[in-house]
Design a protein around this nucleic acid. Structure first.
Lengths: 253, 253
DNA sequence: TAGTGGTCTAGACCACGGG
DNA sequence: CCGTGGTCTAGACCACTAT
């Protein structure tokens, strides 16, 4: 099974062979692969070599290992499409409300843990909000779960002078969320700017989001501006990469 | 250095220790880490254990290995911001022209390889284009490089009946690209819909994009609609995750 | 109890890079 | 040439899952 003279490392040959079998449907999503010990016999290589091959497939996100059970072809996860063009005043909702509406549309049980605190703006966030470093900012940290599984982290930061005395500083911001409260306070929102990047999770995110190896995250920073061009909120969101798809509509002219 | 009774695997302890030192600035971006053999001595564990620890850091994308040279803290790459709200008719540019303009703005030397072919629509693309499976589609494959490094793959698909006899079926689509040629042919574009997801690269993408382990890709599907609501183009783009950031502007109302 | 993956060891030889 | 990471071996014991 393994070509010893090709120059291609044995573990890559094993990985390719298994990958091909998976893609050809010989092993379907959710199927169990042969055990490591069986693969040792099948391919005639050592256990370390097999484990390195499996390691590749796990890093690619197409195989998962379950301790004491076996190796499985990763089942496709249901992807949630988030339409980002629905941040309009008419469909008023902050990210939390967004998430709750999304839950309804996709039939999962949502839970949100919120913590609120005040901190001094660091260089990065001061720059993003256009305020002086060291100025007080209100920070809202949210951990969002679907059916008990954490799927999204979000941290909003607003200049404290906009939020003092408003419901924004409470755990529950009320109907319409942060944005509705801001407009009640006289801030007229003009537009949002979303910046989307991807990266592998940090060690802490991997724990919080219960991420298996080989699943990247989407890092979205949404900055909200009012009609005077001032940034009134910076929301940093981290989404499990294999569960979300962000949809944007762009006019052609 | 290693706590043998904590229950935390040795390789994780080694990885955490190195990660902390990197984040604390003890090893800066581009710095060389101690060699594997040195780490064996430093931590008092076997080479396999050290390699497993390094493997974690590589999967996280914070360390790279250079054969014959050593281990290095991955240097931050310059991120290219792509403003996606500039697909307007005024700033007419197909993705290739987009890429060329982007190159100018970011001072890198762009090259684009294009191949054109005709295929029968599969189920997925037929669905995306709203045509019958098996209908002929024009496929434009593009490999885009910056300073010789492949940074983006793009595959456009259009119903053949829209492109027959136009310059769209040539390698060079001319000024303004695909979209300008479509409008010349009487197709009035209305809007684009971009769907953004992230995943680990396939084995082929990893080779084409020369991706080191631990770097995910952004998968963007841009569908362009005309004023009759018909999908006229589906463009599947694959972007190197640690080099791109997509920026979208969303009106507040 | 049996089988699974998780961790770990002490070696070996190879291929690459730079002096 | 020597030091580097890359690949590979033949074991070992542990923790977890299921029967």
């Amino acid at each position: 099974m393994i070509d010893r003279v090709s120059g291609v490392p044995a573990y890559r040959q094993v990985a390719s062979d298994l990958r091909n079998k998976i893609q050809a449907g010989q092993y379907a999503a959710g199927d169990k692969l042969p055990s490591e010990r069986q693969l040792i016999v099948d391919y005639g290589v050592s256990r370390i070599t097999i484990r390195e091959a499996i390691g590749l497939l796990r890093a690619e996100g197409i195989v998962t290992a379950e301790h004491g059970k076996g190796l499985y072809v990763r089942a496709g996860v249901s992807v949630v499409r988030l339409s980002r063009s629905r941040l309009s005043r008419a469909a008023r909702q902050d990210n939390q409300a967004f998430f709750l509406g999304d839950a309804e549309a996709n039939a999962f049980k949502p839970t949100v843990q919120t913590t609120v605190r005040i901190e001094e703006a660091g260089l990065e966030h001061a720059d993003a909000l256009g305020i002086e470093p060291g100025s007080p900012v209100l920070v809202r940290d949210r951990v969002m779960s679907a059916d008990g599984v954490v799927v999204q982290l979000a941290t909003s930061r607003l200049p404290r002078d906009l939020t003092e005395g408003t419901q924004i500083e409470q755990g529950d911001t009320g109907a319409g969320g942060i944005h509705a409260r801001l407009e009640e306070a006289g801030v007229v929102l003009h537009h949002h700017r979303e910046s989307v990047a991807t990266r592998m999770p940090t060690a802490e995110e991997a724990v919080l989001l219960q991420l298996p190896p080989g699943v990247p995250v989407l890092a979205v920073r949404r900055t909200t501006y009012d009609t005077t061009g001032r940034a009134v909120e910076v929301n940093d969101m981290t989404l499990v990469g294999n569960r979300y798809e962000l949809v944007y509509d762009i006019p052609a002219d």
